[in-house]
């Protein structure tokens, strides 16, 4: 059974069919890429998967569970976490608190426990801090955990967003252009990190990316979108060799 299975997904905005007959199957532990020219509908697919938009048609299954049409918070609880193309951190919270916010649903305590500092509060908060610091260590952010998230340099902000998404303990991680705005060196270390996250956490990762080096370097499978439709799909090497894909990217 695939971790993520999408069948005939579609949505229209007014007269525009933004995504049409979209099919996708990602196996557990797979690193999968979603590519396509600007405006092809990649981020729209992410927004459909995470409940930001409700699809007009189609089915989304996560680990066999039908999550079509659910609200964003329920999809997060079901196990999909994401990052954003334009970074969306909690700027005025500390780096540590950004990650702890990600653990919100997995580490509850009674509402008044935080006011009266009950043992349950202490135990849960300590547990969260410990876990969060461990996670930050993976992303080389442990030394920065007291800083405000908005004060981090760009590359670290991207990493923190991934750390926060992982803090929700997801089954599937969606990365929306993780390498956007990074120089080749940063991209290289990001690739290593994404691979590491997959191996270390056994994570299934679906990512949108423009950087072909990154895509061909780490993705095991690829889907190419063009004008909201699937242009090609399959194993990375063969998809990138597909003449239709080359045409879509480079023109005639």
């Amino acid at each position: 059974m695939p971790m993520l299975e999408v069948k005939n997904l579609g949505i229209s905005f007014g007269g525009l069919r933004a995504v049409n007959e979209f099919n996708l199957s990602v196996e557990k532990g797979q690193l999968y890429g979603l590519i396509g020219p600007n405006g092809a509908g990649k981020t729209t697919v992410f927004n459909l998967l995470t409940g930001v938009y409700q699809p007009d048609s189609g089915v989304i299954r996560l680990d066999g569970e039908d999550i079509t049409g659910r609200k964003t918070i329920d999809i997060s609880k079901a196990g999909i976490a994401r990052t954003f193309q334009n970074i969306r951190l909690f700027g005025k919270l500390s780096v540590l608190d950004n990650v702890k916010a990600g653990m919100h649903n997995k580490h509850p305590y009674p509402p008044l426990a935080g006011i009266f500092h009950t043992p349950a509060w202490k135990r849960t908060e300590d547990e969260m801090t410990e876990k969060a610091l461990k996670l930050l260590e993976v992303f080389d952010l442990k030394d920065d955990h007291e800083y405000l998230a908005s004060n981090l340099p760009y590359g670290k902000q991207r990493k923190l967003e991934i750390a926060r998404a992982l803090a929700t303990d997801p089954k599937l991680l969606l990365l929306d252009e993780p390498a956007a705005g990074m120089n080749p060196q940063e991209t290289k270390s990001l690739m290593d990190m994404i691979r590491f996250v997959r191996d270390e956490f056994g994570m299934t990762i679906l990512l949108i990316e423009h950087d072909m080096k990154l895509v061909s370097g780490i993705c095991e499978g690829l889907t190419v979108l063009n004008f909201g439709e699937v242009l090609a799909q399959g194993e990375t090497g063969s998809v990138l060799a597909n003449p239709a894909v080359i045409t879509a990217y480079l023109g005639e």
């Binding site: 997060s76 969306r88 005025k92 608190d97 990600g102 919100h104 305590y109 908060e125 998404a165």
Partner: peptide
């Protein structure tokens, strides 16, 4: 300084991101 406060401030800082990590 509690979990609830963190949730409130995360909504203040970025509502869409707060929703994406499952905050009501």
């Amino acid at each position: 300084q509690s979990r609830d406060g963190r949730a409130i401030m995360s909504i203040r800082d970025n509502r869409i991101a707060a929703e994406s990590i499952g905050i009501n």
